[in-house]
Each structure stands twice: as C-alpha cells, then as structure tokens.
Amino acid sequence: MSNIIELKNVNKWFDKFQVLKDINLTVNQKEKIVVCGPSGSGKSTLIRCINRLEEHQEGNIVVDGNEISENTKDIEKIRAEVGMVFQQFNLFPHLSILDNCTLAPIWVKKMPKKQAEEIAMSNLKQVQIDDQALKFPGQLSGGQQQRAAIARALCMEPKIMLFDEPTSALDPEMIKEVLDVMVDLAKGGMTMIVVTHEMGFAKEVADNMIFMDEGRIVEKAKTKEFFDNPKSDRTKLFLSQIL
C-alpha cells in the first residue's frame, strides 16, 4: 500500500526551544497510528505540522504526494484532504450543527447547498446526532459536540483524519460515545493518526503505536509488540504509569 504521509528529518523550534527532533515517519493508506507520550513531548505539534497549523523549520513533509513547505500554494487544498478533530471541539458557535458541517463543502468545494446538506446529514447520522442537526453547539453536551466536530471534518471527505487528544476535555461518561465513533471510523478504512491517552482504544484499533518523549520518536512498533514487549526503558516507564 502506498504511503500517504511521509516525514523526513523534520525539526521544529519554538523560538530557541526545539520541540521536534529528527522526526522520521511513514504512514500508509488505511493505517491507524496512535501517538502517546508525556505532556510536552511534541505529539500535538507533530500532527499539527501535517496540516501546517504549525510550521516546521527543517526537513520534508509530504502529504498525499504534495510537499508541505512555506512555498506551498493552495495549502487550503491540502487541508481539505486532511481532517482534524481538536481537544476543545472548536465548533462555530454562531452556526447550527448542520451549518457547521456544510460550511466548508459549500465555500471550498463549491457544492450546491442541497448536496452538502445530504452529505452532512449522512455523516451526522453516522455519529448518531442527526436529530440535533438544527441545534446550536451551545445547546449540546460535550460528547455530542465532539461527535459533531468529527462529522464536520468528515464532510470534506478527507483521506486522512488527525485527532488531537479528542477525549481529554470530556467528562468520563461521554468518552465512550466518542471513542465508539472513532472505532467505527477506523473499521471503515480511514487513515487515522490519533494522539490520546486512551490505551484501551489504542489496543483495539491501532496498527502501529508511536511513543514520543522530548520531541523524539522513541519507539515505533506494531501494537501488540508495543504493549507486550516495549523495547525502550522510557516506554516501559510511561506504560507502567498509565496502565
């Protein structure tokens, strides 16, 4: 299977602080990767570089055959292929859930409104909040909002979905409903990179696990191998703390 994301020798600094050190990573189509590690290890920064919400200073990032750099024209086109789900949901509070989902298809893909709404309703149904379509984000619970955010990202029919700690801001009883949606998405064949602490989810869905610490990829292994037989000491320490 062809690789859809490739990072080669990527380095990034925030002022003088180096937050990504020598990152090398390949992601294949339909692959599910879970990135874990202590806070401040650069996990979020890593995936935010993939859709250029953050800029890397050294190295190459290639997404679906397009190189991402400061010279990239139409970064928006690349972003349309990469969906992102945020920790804080970031739904647009002044638009209904349905409008949140149809906004980009109408304005970026120039779809007729009816068609956009059909796609939106089918995605909202998939995440099981189609009955809330006409409500506003402020009227929904946290779990419902995050599922709506996932639907919004799916409406652009992306090839890749990035998740930045999607359940960290949720009350415990709502985490499951969001994870269930993500499991369904994975089973449907989506390429996913997920930054999370939910190891149960990781064991169920991930093909490969990545452990990051202090800006480096310390260990990358197939899931079973990662949990049963972690090679690095730091990985062992981290796993012992969260499992």
């Binding site: 859709n51 919400l53 928006e76 086109k77 972003r79 349309a80 990469v82 969906g83 992102m84 945020f86 804080q88 970031n90 739904l91 647009f92 906004l103 980009a104 304005w107 970026v108 955010a149 919004r152 990202a153 652009m156």
Partner: peptide, 12 residues
Amino acid sequence: GQKEAAASIGLN
C-alpha cells in the same frame, strides 16, 4: 481554536 478549526477544514 476557531481560526484553527476553520483553517483545518480548508477555508482560506
């Protein structure tokens, strides 16, 4: 986060 979310779905 609003600006980031809007950027992430491809709006210019």
